[in-house]
Design a protein around this nucleic acid. Structure first.
Length: 572
RNA sequence: GCGCCGGUAGCUCAGUGGAUAGAGUGUCUCACUCCGAAUGAGAAGGCCGCGGGUUCAAUCCCCGCUCGGCGCACCA
């Protein structure tokens, strides 16, 4: 793909103004308004270097670089050099490249041959898959897709929460109040009711907590009865989780959860001891991180059982040995910021320099409208499956109203309904907290997934209205791109042009919303183009040129939605 | 108390050390005999939390304060 920044940077650099070529390239910006050009080079920094008025430098540069056939014109406005690209030139380069590459447009191979581990979703066994899990699941999935687009070999890991004191609680509750019959009928809801009941009872009778801890110690020691119950909980839960993953179209390369690492913990504790990092405190084993202002990392409880931190250390070492990752990414709530800081510091103290490649990708909290926090303990949950099903149902209702005779209506309603929920989740910066709201999650107007999908379906529809010969002609790339130099076509082409850099930016920041936002811009721009200019005109050359842009837009929208984990139906 | 994160239009949120801070939504208008109105156009709406500082230039960087969220040893 042609790179206008490179062209401009090379030209300015060749003037020997005392900045490196990369420095020059970094200064190049996209102006806030189109009338100020497509790229701009502010000369304030040079003014300092050259001890000369920035306006004069800008005028100088503008005069010297204007003679390039990629540019329409280059002008100086105050301290800025404003570059206007040649509209036919960019149209030809961008559209031909997209229509040539098709479904691979946006992908690169900069990560080829390197492994990245992404730890995401990771629900707790025996607990419902609720709305709180959507963030890690959907953000993590998109991060996987983005890094795959960059050519990395991505290992998506569902680090199931299938171990810990909570299972002691489940075991105790099941023994006291459980029934096999209920469990078979409605596994998760039944398990949840035990869990809730346990916490109610434990309020009155703290001895239950001791009993639970004891049950977990027995589980960890491999006692048959406890292990059998635990296996039962795990199996039923996974079945239920897989229903949701199937709806979302999400798969994992590994399901190695916390229990997978239980036999690797003693070695970690030995290692910590031999490296002199561990010490006893109030009966428990800790790594003292006071000197780094990180408190103490608890490694082993006073009853000898392991903790989250210990298992995460074992996990990281195992992943490094198994996958030799260049990045080991954890998509986990921001509530665990301190835990991850402690964990990284312990790895560092253990002498693992690859600790720097371990990255916590945090996200904000979802709360409920009454101000409450989602709480499995209190039974305050919104099931993710219910949210998805409601979105699909609402989509189908809308379709029956607008487009009742559409074939495969259920499949499309599924893609659009699920897409709406996923798109919204990926719309805002992940660090922000938000309040769950049914009206909002089921709103399909404005900057939403259905809006982008609608735009794709609309582009598809236009292409269906063209003849096969015409579509073939757009693929030859031989057409008169001067028909695509109007304001709206040009704006759209510039947005399509920037997609590869947006994908890299989103990946670098572990922030799918960067791409989501850009996709909305593309959809808005296309819809403006659609309204402003008639596409299927009588003039054949003009029609072919416009169809080639419609085709390119459709391809880009479909590709970008795929990086977000969303399907792009041809009709809706 | 200490630490981390957030505060931008009525609401939900983008945004960048630089040129007049942008969308969506809501309100009020307008546009379907015309390629899909889940659309487009227009109006209205802003001490970018407050106070200092750095800088040629700060909504953005630094310090203090304030409001909100989260975290701070036997949960994960």
């Amino acid at each position: 793909m042609i790179d206008y920044r490179d062209i401009i940077a090379d030209l300015i650099f060749s003037e020997n103004l005392g900045l490196s070529r990369d420095e020059v390239r970094d200064i190049i910006e996209i102006p806030t308004e189109e009338r100020m050009g497509d790229f701009a080079f502010p000369c304030f920094k040079l003014a300092k270097e050259l001890r000369k008025a920035p306006q004069m430098i800008a005028a100088d540069i503008a005069a010297k670089i204007s003679d390039c056939d990629a540019f329409e014109k280059v002008e100086q406005v105050n301290a800025y050099v404003n570059v206007f690209v040649n509209r036919s030139h960019i149209a030809e380069n961008v559209i031909e490249e997209i229509n040539d590459q098709g479904s691979t447009y946006g992908q690169t191979d900069i990560g080829a041959g390197r492994n990245i581990v992404v730890d995401f979703s990771s629900p707790n066994i025996a607990k419902p898959f609720h709305i709180g899990h959507i963030r890690s699941t959907v953000i993590g999935n998109s991060i996987c897709k983005l890094y795959k687009a960059l050519g990395y070999n991505v290992i998506g890991v569902n680090h199931l929460g299938d171990y810990g004191t909570q299972f002691g609680k489940m075991i105790v509750a099941y023994r006291k109040w459980g029934s096999e019959e209920d469990l078979v009928k409605e596994p998760i809801k039944t398990l949840l009711s035990y869990y809730t009941k346990f916490h109610e009872e434990a309020e009155k009778d703290p001895a239950l907590d001791d009993e639970a801890r004891e049950a977990f110690v027995r589980l960890e020691a491999g006692e048959e009865e406890e292990v059998k119950l635990w296996e039962k909980f795990r199996e039923y839960s996974l079945e239920e989780f897989n229903k949701v993953y199937k709806m979302l179209g999400i798969t994992f390369e590994s399901y190695a959860g916390e229990s997978f690492y239980s036999d690797k913990i003693p070695a970690v504790i030995e290692e910590l001891k031999s490296k002199g990092l561990i010490k006893e405190s109030q009966g428990a084993q800790i790594v003292d991180l006071e000197e780094y202002d990180l408190g103490a990392a608890m490694i082993m409880k006073s009853d000898g059982s392991s903790l989250y931190a210990t298992r995460d250390i074992a996990t990281a070492i195992y992943r490094k040995n198994t996958y030799d990752f260049v990045k080991n990414i954890y998509v986990v709530a921001s509530q665990q910021n301190l835990h991850f800081k402690q964990w990284k510091m312990v790895l560092k103290l253990m002498g693992y320099e690859w600790e720097k490649d371990c990255i916590h990708v945090p996200f904000g909290l979802i709360s409920l409208e009454d101000g409450e926090i989602l709480s499995t303990r209190k039974g305050k949950v919104i099931f993710l499956e219910d949210v998805l099903n409601n979105a699909v149902k609402k989509t189908k209702d809308i379709m029956l109203e607008k487009n009742p005779n559409i074939p495969e209506i259920d499949n499309i309603a599924h893609d659009v309904g699920i897409g709406a929920v996923v798109f919204q989740e990926l719309s805002n910066n992940r660090i922000k907290d938000y309040v769950f709201n049914w009206d909002k999650v089921l709103n399909f107007d404005g900057e939403t997934g259905p809006y982008v999908q609608y735009t794709h379906a609309r582009a598809s529809s236009v292409l269906r209205n063209a003849s096969p010969e015409e579509l073939n002609e757009t693929k030859t790339g031989i057409c008169d791109y001067s028909y695509l130099t109007g304001e709206t076509a040009f704006s759209l082409i510039k947005l399509l042009y920037r997609v590869p850099e947006v994908i890299i930016d989103a990946s670098d920041k572990y922030e799918p919303s960067v791409l989501t936002r850009h996709l909305v811009d593309i959809a808005q721009s296309f819809n403006k183009f659609y309204h402003d200019e008639h596409i299927l005109v009588d003039n054949r050359d003009e029609k072919i040129a416009k169809l080639s842009l419609v085709m390119a837009t459709k391809t880009v929208i479909a590709n970008c939605l795929a990086f977000l984990g969303i399907n792009a139906p041809e009709r809706m």
